[in-house]
């Protein structure tokens, strides 16, 4: 295979890793954020955690794999992004740590204070993760001060521009909606109805910020010069899909509601990566200084080796993760006898 083709394949593969991560872990973040608001009694909270308990950790590995694959395939992208987003990623890591440990520890002690603390850490940790990932991705589209040596020259406050903060809020809102539709699909009884009510309200918030973000993408990125005023099918479908979600929510078609939010996330990411391609880090100091799949990648040999590795393992992973979802496909009740932990 030619070098350019391998570089393109790896760009697509890393996009796929992120997309799968957002589609799977997106509802985990949403469920996490909703936990203390949706669950009032202890067994309700446990039922909510049980809805994602068996799979959240496996979902999170898609993020670690996206990081590892970026390191292996595009070392400069990995180096510039991770060092450039230093404090943001530090906070993201703290968010992931407090959330991860809380899932495992919250039910291991019966003291209500203990459980309450960990429940809030799940919620806050999930919120931090969604907010920062949204902010980071919109910053990538927005462009960053990157010099001729591929080094980020801004600081944390450079990342906190209004457009990117809107991106962060959008990711929080969409994941909240996603989490609520997921719980409507996974829970039973009163808790399920409560999740449905939440999704109705969260829908309004999500739809507003998504439309706003789409609007400001015209003013804050180079979409008009790169793609044109007419963004094409995918970005438009992204908006349409989020707008029709309300129909499914109101008709109590919870499976469809969940799928349509998932599709929205998928299309958003596809739009994002299409806008980026073939760039991976856009320099707003000088377009010549942007990192692209051509100047940021590993050697042809390494990309070739990693392609074989990915070809072997990704199907196996999809198979056993699919099996895990199949095992835990049933709805979760708040009946104490069926709850785990």
């Amino acid at each position: 295979m030619s070098y350019e083709l391998l570089q393109t394949i790896w760009f697509i593969l890393i996009a796929v890793l992120w997309i799968v991560f957002f589609i799977l872990e997106g509802f985990d973040f949403g469920v996490g954020m909703l936990l203390p608001f949706l669950g009032k009694k202890d067994e309700e909270r446990r039922a909510i955690i049980n809805a994602i308990g068996p799979t959240w950790d496996g979902n999170e590995v898609w993020l670690l794999t996206a990081g590892g694959a970026t390191f292996a395939a595009f070392p400069h992208w990995y180096a510039t992004m991770f060092s450039g987003f230093y404090l943001a990623l530090f906070l993201l890591v703290i968010g992931l740590i407090i959330r991860g440990i809380s899932f495992e520890y919250r039910s291991k002690d019966a003291n209500p204070k203990w459980r309450h603390t960990f429940d809030w850490m799940i919620s806050i940790g999930s919120f931090i993760c969604a907010l920062l990932l949204g902010t980071a991705f919109t910053n990538l589209a927005h462009g960053l001060p990157i010099n001729a040596d591929m080094i980020y020259t801004g600081n944390l406050f450079t990342l906190l521009n209004p457009y990117s903060l809107l991106g962060g809020v959008t990711m929080v809102a969409v994941f909240l909606l996603y989490g609520a539709t997921f719980l409507t699909l996974k829970l039973e009884g009163e808790l399920r109805e409560r999740a449905r009510e939440f999704s109705k309200n969260l829908y309004v918030l999500a739809a507003i910020v998504v439309v706003l973000l789409a609007f400001f993408t015209y003013t804050s990125t180079d979409i008009t010069t790169k793609i044109g005023i007419n963004p094409g099918f995918t970005p438009l479908a992204t908006i349409v899909v989020i707008l029709v979600t309300t129909f499914f929510i109101n008709r109590k078609m919870e499976g469809w509601a969940f799928l349509s939010v998932a599709t929205h996330i998928l299309l958003t990411q596809v739009s994002f990566f299409t806008l980026m391609f073939p760039r991976v880090m856009i320099s707003n100091l000088n377009p010549e200084w942007s990192l692209t799949i051509y100047n940021a990648s590993s050697s042809q040999y390494t990309l070739g080796v990693m392609s074989i590795v990915a070809l072997i393992f990704v199907p196996i992973i999809l198979a056993y993760q699919g099996w895990a979802y199949y095992i835990f496909r049933k709805r979760i009740s708040t009946d104490k006898k069926t709850l785990v932990y």
Binding site: T65, S83, M150, M306, V309
Partner: peptide, 23 residues
Amino acid sequence: GMNWSEYSRYVGDIFGAPLAIEA
């Protein structure tokens, strides 16, 4: 990447592979 970006640039072609395979 966060603290050792120049290291990551210098060895990423090699060192990234076992990390990605580990994941």
